[in-house]
Design a protein around this nucleic acid. Structure first.
Lengths: 116, 116
DNA sequence: TAAGAATACATCGAACTTCGAGGTATCGGG
DNA sequence: CCCGATACCTCGAAGTTCGATGTATTCTTA
């Protein structure tokens, strides 16, 4: 996920979202965008220019593998499937996300802190 | 904060952290970095190359104003203070962060969703 | 008292993420 | 027959952050 050490921001959240969606079963690109919209109550609307590079990157890094399978209607579809590596990465991302949330909330929440 | 509409990621979190820290009183750059480290249990370690451009940007956009004030030791310090605009921005950021968290958690948490 | 660590500011290029616009093609309905 | 939805893709522009580097001053410690 290319998160840099000690990076206070949480980038590549889109990549994590993709991994999480694939956990629920193999999916093709267009479907990922629709499902994300649905699962987030229309809050998240990932763009194709964002998604496809992410999928290609994940595949290049071995987090997912893909296969082509036409729909009933004969429409071309490329499905993506989590690899064991991808599952592990997702688990790590979840931990990192939880840690980030906790610390971020602590700072923006406004708890006091006495500096040495 | 330059967040783009419908952006599933939450960028510029560093900017939000800076605003939140300034809410606790005027602070100078180096102090912001130390306090952030402290308040986040050493999890966040903002780099100077990150912070100073952020502060300059916030000032240019009227979210903060600055003034110079030497320390007891005679060391040069530039303090930053939230403007009314900055306070409003921080409030908006908090709402956006809460909304993002909720939706992000919903997706990576794995709730089911039936697509139409 | 000299060296090095800490304080304090700043800028720059490289890397990464994301958008938005554009391109190609197929399928179904009006 | 056209248009909207489906389905894939690429490219350049914009924004964020790091890491390196630079400049000064003050404090600590050997």
């Amino acid at each position: 996920m290319a998160r840099r050490k000690n990076d206070p921001s949480f980038p590549a959240s889109n990549t994590m979202l993709v991994l999480a969606l694939l956990e629920g079963g193999d999916k093709y690109g267009y479907q990922i965008i629709r499902e994300l919209e649905c699962r987030s109550d229309r809050t998240f609307s990932m763009k194709e220019g964002t998604l496809y590079p992410i999928l290609h990157g994940l595949e290049a890094r071995g987090e997912v593998r893909s296969y082509e399978q036409a729909s009933d209607a004969g429409r071309r579809r490329r499905y993506y499937q989590l690899t064991r590596q991808g599952v592990k990465t997702l688990a790590r991302c979840r931990q990192e996300w939880a840690a980030f949330c906790k610390q971020f909330g602590k700072v923006v929440g406004g708890e006091a802190c006495v500096l040495g």
